[in-house]
Design a protein around this nucleic acid. Structure first.
Lengths: 147, 147
DNA sequence: TATTGTTATACTCTATAACTATA
DNA sequence: TATAGTTATAGAGTATAACAATA
């Protein structure tokens, strides 16, 4: 009944998720990239898109993306070019060097996942995925104000 | 094989954990308290302890705890008194008003958990807890450096 | 006038180190 | 000298708004 941190499934999921995220971020940084830079390369892998689309896909503000792309471009891992059809737009594309770096990152993430779920069988991983998919995380408007 | 965000169990656990944490924090704030303040009351509920012990239990720096306790004390939800046996120490104790506030918080957290896991049977919740307990989250030294 | 990308500003969190009073 | 609590400072991350170029 009580929801103390020690016996609450919500806290457990939150804490395990946080630690898992930290482990994944460490793996994302394997190529010397900031986790967010690696995530950007992941988003770009399937195909080029505009900065606005990229920011929406990553759920960050377009203004935050600018510095990330500046650095990725400076390291030759991604490139921007003007969209000839609408010269306001930048089309962002991953480079060959970026794809190579991304391969290392994805290998490191796979290794991290092998470690994280080493004690679980394939069937149990499927089960865990299915259960996590059924956790209700739609964002309702929960009162967060101070009053 | 590939560890793209969309099909990776690690990313799924990380993301669901993050959203669950956000929902829990919203519930923690129900009494007008900052989530960390509510967590502090939770830690104090079983019994009084020194600030240093409290900081260790909450895994935050003792210096961060100072402002939290100042505010809790200002609102009459917790109180500090000198340890007569060692006048350097502050013994921190939850007040009756703090316990009352904590009841509201715990009820809100329970309600949040009911919503989060509404689609899961009791047996499935037990199963999820068991699987999460077997995710390896011991902190090894994973290379996070830029090189 | 609206939109894309950019820059500038401010606010929150957190990490660290110096300081005091006690031991 | 070492420890408990406190204060001060700096850094990362993020949210917001103003701005220039283009539509």
């Amino acid at each position: 009944m009580a929801a103390s941190p020690s016996d609450s499934l919500g806290f457990l999921l939150s804490f395990r998720g946080e630690l898992t995220g930290a482990r994944i971020r460490a793996a994302l940084g394997v190529a010397g990239l900031h986790p967010r830079h690696a995530m950007t390369l992941m988003q770009l892998a399937p195909g080029a898109m505009s900065q606005r689309e990229l920011a929406a896909a990553m759920e960050i503000d377009p203004s935050q993306l600018v510095a990330v792309l500046n650095e990725l471009e400076g390291e030759g891992l991604a490139e921007r070019r003007r969209d000839p059809a609408d010269r306001r737009r930048h089309i962002v594309k991953i480079t060959d060097a970026g794809a190579t770096a991304l391969e290392r990152v994805e290998a490191a993430v796979s290794e991290a996942e092998r470690e994280l779920f080493a004690d679980l069988s394939e069937a149990e991983k499927v089960l865990l995925r299915g259960l996590l998919d059924r956790v209700s995380v739609e964002k309702g408007d929960h009162d967060c104000s101070a009053g």
